[in-house]
């Protein structure tokens, strides 16, 4: 039991940090531009595929740097030639544009790399067992993912709070006219922010693509859950995204590894339920099945009772 809890915590943390890498860019873009980027997970997928291509010519370390830059560049193009044009039609139009981009990017990935998963592998220099605990080994690459995610959080935080650029960015969001009047190019700041956010998604893709599997469905399987994280944590809040990522990572992981049904738990405390009536039927559903639904349920509940999310500053 103890080892299962320890490993669930480790696995949950890891999944949570991967979610955070993805969610941080999304929440930044929203917090700064008010744009909900539906295509965020698609940029994540692009990151993984670009890393695959780049690393097949050079190596993983080059890909780790170049792929996020390239994805960020694509993000900048998207903002400059797409979002900026529809900005005047309001946020719903921006949402719809990124929604359409999901279809375009996902199909372009199939067009370029095919439908079959690509063999994007963990670099040999990180492919070893870091330590063994209770007979289960902990691969070094997982530790590396955790390290990169934490480093990313610290870097973004310092960038926004401690630097002049960060101050201008934050000011541009709340008072664009004022910042513009001070001689800063606000549209360019928006482009940079969007590029930065999508670049972070690209970085998440580089890290997760070889840990999981790089295939055209990876964006779709990640997209909704990232939205959940961002909304749950509070749109625009970096700290909220971190907390929400970890909560959701841990909750889903524990639901899988604690494979008990509610009936088992009740039986453990001496309450028997028979499966015949409806309440009994519900109670016999495995926790692992409920686990998939939990994040969405949490999101709906928080939107109803606390629409600004865990740590959000304002409501949408």
């Amino acid at each position: 039991m103890l080892e299962s809890i320890v490993f669930s915590v480790l696995n949950g943390l890891l999944y949570g940090m991967l979610l955070f890498m993805l969610a941080s860019g999304l929440t930044l873009i929203f917090g700064m531009m008010g744009v909900l980027n539906f295509a965020h997970a698609s940029f994540y997928m692009l990151g993984a595929y670009c890393a695959y291509t780049i690393s097949s010519y050079t190596n993983f370390w080059v890909a780790l740097i170049l792929a996020p830059l390239f994805v960020g560049f694509l993000g900048a193009l998207t903002e400059r030639f797409g979002l900026r044009n529809v900005h005047k039609h309001g946020h719903v139009a921006e949402l719809l544009l990124t929604f359409g981009l999901v279809y375009v990017i996902d199909e372009l990935v199939v067009l370029i790399w095919g439908q079959i998963p690509v063999n994007y592998a963990i670099p040999p220099s990180l492919d070893f067992t870091l330590f063994t605990l209770f007979g289960t080994s902990f691969p070094a690459y997982r530790a590396f993912i955790l390290f990169v995610a934490v480093a990313m959080f610290v870097a973004i935080y310092l960038l926004l709070v401690r630097t002049r650029v960060g101050m201008i960015i934050r000011a541009a969001l709340s008072h664009p006219e004022m910042v513009g009047a001070l001689g800063h190019d606000v549209p360019r700041i928006f482009t940079l922010v969007f590029a930065f956010g999508t670049g972070l998604a690209g970085l998440a893709g580089v890290m997760a693509g070889n840990y999981y599997i790089t295939e055209p469905g990876m964006a779709f399987s990640m997209g909704p859950i990232v939205f959940v994280v961002v909304v749950f944590g509070g749109l625009g809040s970096l700290g909220g995204a971190l907390a929400a990522s970890l909560i959701i990572g841990l909750v889903t992981t524990f639901a899988v590894s604690l494979n008990y049904s509610v009936a088992d738990l009740l039986a453990a405390v001496g309450l028997g339920l028979d499966g015949e009536n409806i309440a009994g039927g519900l109670a016999h559903i495995d926790l692992s099945r409920i686990g998939q639904m939990l994040p969405y349920l949490m999101m709906v509940l928080i939107l109803i009772f606390r629409p600004r999310g865990l740590m959000g500053a304002r409501e949408s």
Partner: peptide, 18 residues
């Protein structure tokens, strides 16, 4: 507005995964 859109997204995913 956007909050409504997000709730519908959440409900949609919730029903699908349930």
């Amino acid at each position: 507005g956007v909050t409504f859109a997000m709730i519908t997204l959440g409900i949609g995913s919730m029903v699908e995964s349930s």
